[in-house]
Simulated scan of single mutants.
Amino acid sequence: MGHLDHAAYGWLTPVLSYAMACIGAALGLRCTVQALAAPTARSRRNWLLTAASATGTGIWTMHFIAMLGFSVSGTEIRYDIPRTVLSLVVAMAVAGAGVFALGHLRARGPALLVAGLATGLGVAAMHYIGMSAVRLHGSIAYDLPAVALSVLIAVATATAALWAALTIRSPLAVTFAALVMGAAVTSMHYTGMAAVSVTVMPSSEALAGATATQFVFPLTVGLGSYLFLTSAFVALTPTAAERAATVSAQRLTRAPGAV
């Protein structure tokens, strides 16, 4: 049985992974709120697409930053590139299903349940597809009760975060919801990793796939840059209330007798 280390670099990878999860969640929630207040169908669609990409990217980046700190004694670790990319696509697709359900279903209660379920399952699907990309000298097994718990955590906390963001739309509420969703993604990851056990089978054969520094790290940096650029764009975009205030001010200045 190989010894598993989930924080080979100390607190660096857990803290960074949580931060990226929060940034992705904050962007996704902010874009979803913008979509719900969008004046046109096209604008709503664009905001929801941005929300899906930001949420999916944040989830994926969190997972693989955390995986940079994952090591197993007695074996090297490689990553299957197609499956790693598939995990990113799945994260974005399922996050997209969640935010589009939230943005288009008329009944808020069912929409919230569908969105929370889709987002939570998306987090779990991304995690376990990403884990299936791991290549090492040995075999990986999972404790099924811990796996089920990790999925339950993801769904429950994602639903709670979406509810908070949509019920109380203040910046403080969105920030709080992002912290909760970031915690959901991170706790789901480490709960899922607690379910892992590895039986090492020493071998001199070269492992297929890429190392974390060859593929995962550069892709993570690229996606992290995308999140920061998107953050700047969203921060500079006025909210519906700000747009309404601007229009009202313009009308007042154009009104007859205005100074």
Results as ranks from 00 to 15, higher is better:
Ala21Ile: 08
Met188Trp: 01
Leu162His: 12
Ala66Ile: 11
Val134Gln: 10
Met62Gly: 07
Gly224Gln: 07
Thr75Glu: 11
Val185Asp: 04
Arg78Trp: 04
Leu207Asp: 03
Pro82Trp: 15
Val114Ile: 15
Met131Tyr: 05
Pro110Met: 08
Ala118Arg: 05
Ala184Ile: 09
Ala258Asn: 14
Val134Lys: 05
Val180Ser: 09
Trp60Asp: 01
Gly10Tyr: 11
Arg135Leu: 03
Gly69Asn: 01
Gly74Lys: 06
Gly122Ser: 08
Leu149Thr: 02
Ser225Gly: 12
His63Ala: 14
Val155Arg: 07
Val185Gly: 05
Leu27Ser: 07
Gly209Glu: 00
Val200Pro: 00
Ala146Lys: 11
Ala25Glu: 02
Ala158Phe: 06
Val123Glu: 08
Leu113Lys: 01
Ser87Leu: 08
Thr50Leu: 04
Val247Ser: 10
Pro171Tyr: 15
Arg169Thr: 05
Phe233Ser: 07
Leu117Trp: 13
Ile23Trp: 12
His63Lys: 12
Pro218Lys: 07
Cys31Asp: 06
Thr237Ile: 09
Cys31Lys: 13
Leu4Cys: 04
Val180Leu: 15
Ala178Gly: 10
Ala118Cys: 15
Thr186His: 13
Val72Lys: 10
Ser248Tyr: 13
Leu49Gly: 02
Leu179Cys: 13
Val99Thr: 07
Gly96Phe: 01
Ala111Ile: 02
Pro14Cys: 10
Phe64Tyr: 10
Leu105Lys: 06
Ala240Gly: 08
Glu242Lys: 03
Ala255Gln: 11
Gly74Met: 09
Val90Leu: 15
Arg254Phe: 07
Ala210Phe: 14
Leu29Tyr: 14
Ala101Ser: 15
Met62Asp: 04
Phe64His: 02
Ala161Glu: 01
Thr211Lys: 13
Ser43Cys: 06
